[in-house]
């Protein structure tokens, strides 16, 4: 089953390779991995999308927790959560009919055209991975030059929050 694991990790050189190394050394899947500093610049938030049997997911969580740099982690898929992926896509649009059609599709998917040339549109689209896949599919025969996806990030719904425990 697919799981989204969110990690608060010390924002230090090498922290990312410890996580990536753990996954390759133990043969776990990584579908996507994103990482960036949080509002507290000493911490990074990492989101890993992985899959495996329940036993493997439990092991992944425990093994990640065992890494000295990992401060806290949470398996988003255990509760209600929101996930987002961002995609930037560069499309060749030669004639006006094609330009109209792509613009219309982008609007339907609530994408934004963020760069335009005589022959190209660059579109930004945010949503779940499924939505991004659906957009790509809807483009049909259009000539796609580039696709960049951020990988999934996630956050839990409601009160639950992945943050430092107070040390008092």
């Amino acid at each position: 089953m697919r799981h989204i694991i969110s990690i608060l990790i010390e924002n230090e050189a090498g922290a990312l390779s410890r996580v990536a190394g753990l996954f390759s050394a133990r043969g776990y899947n990584i579908e996507s991995l994103t990482v960036a500093p949080t509002n507290d610049s000493s911490l990074s938030r990492m989101t890993i999308v992985t899959s495996g049997t329940d036993e493997i997911i439990v092991q992944i969580n425990k093994q990640l927790n065992k890494l000295i740099d990992v401060v806290r982690l949470s398996d988003m898929t255990e509760g209600e959560h929101i996930e987002r992926d961002m995609m930037l896509i560069k499309i060749k649009v030669d004639d006006s009919a094609e330009r109209e059609e792509v613009k219309r599709l982008a609007d339907i998917f609530r994408g934004q055209i963020i760069d335009v040339t005589d022959e190209l549109y660059t579109i930004e689209l945010t949503g779940s991975g499924d939505k991004l896949d659906a957009f790509l599919k809807s483009l049909g025969e259009v000539d796609i030059l580039e696709v960049v996806r951020s990988g999934t990030i996630g956050i839990s719904r409601g009160e639950a929050a992945l943050q430092l425990l107070s040390t008092s």
Partner: peptide
């Protein structure tokens, strides 16, 4: 050294 030893240490520092 930190890279080479990473999978066989409890932790390492540079």
């Amino acid at each position: 050294c930190v890279g080479i030893t990473r999978p066989c240490v409890k932790h390492n520092f540079l």
